[in-house]
């Protein structure tokens, strides 16, 4: 093991935190989607790290990570489809301009 487990975990934590920051703060919807991709990646890193260091069946983590990648791709696809549909109607991709459900 090249790097001790806590370090990788810290790393993925930081990546996740940055992803959350982006999700909360970016005005552009696509920016939010990008940040979500970051978060998913951080989770993947966690999965791989744990499967490598603590479990007896490392395939479990890696298979899981594969599924996560697939899911992430799907979510990106559907999310971008929605963004396109939204852009067509509202002509904007900025979240703070899309507040029809405001009180």
């Amino acid at each position: 093991m090249i790097v001790p487990l806590p370090h990788i975990l810290i790393f993925s934590l930081l990546l996740f935190a940055i992803g959350i920051y982006g999700a909360l703060v970016r005005r552009n919807i696509i920016g939010i989607l990008i940040s979500i991709e970051l978060m998913l990646n951080a989770a993947n890193i966690n999965l791989i790290a744990f499967s490598k260091t603590t479990s007896l069946a490392p395939e479990t983590g890696q298979i899981f990570a594969l599924f996560v990648i697939a899911i992430a791709a799907m979510s990106a696809a559907v999310g971008l489809a929605i963004v396109l549909a939204l852009f067509r109607v509202r002509k904007t991709v900025y979240t703070d301009e899309v507040n029809l459900l405001k009180w």
Partner: peptide
């Protein structure tokens, strides 16, 4: 209370977080 309902998704996400 109604001010919580801003219609902005990111506010909701922040609250959840």
């Amino acid at each position: 209370v109604k001010r919580l309902q801003t219609g902005l998704v990111q506010n909701y996400m922040l609250f959840a977080f």
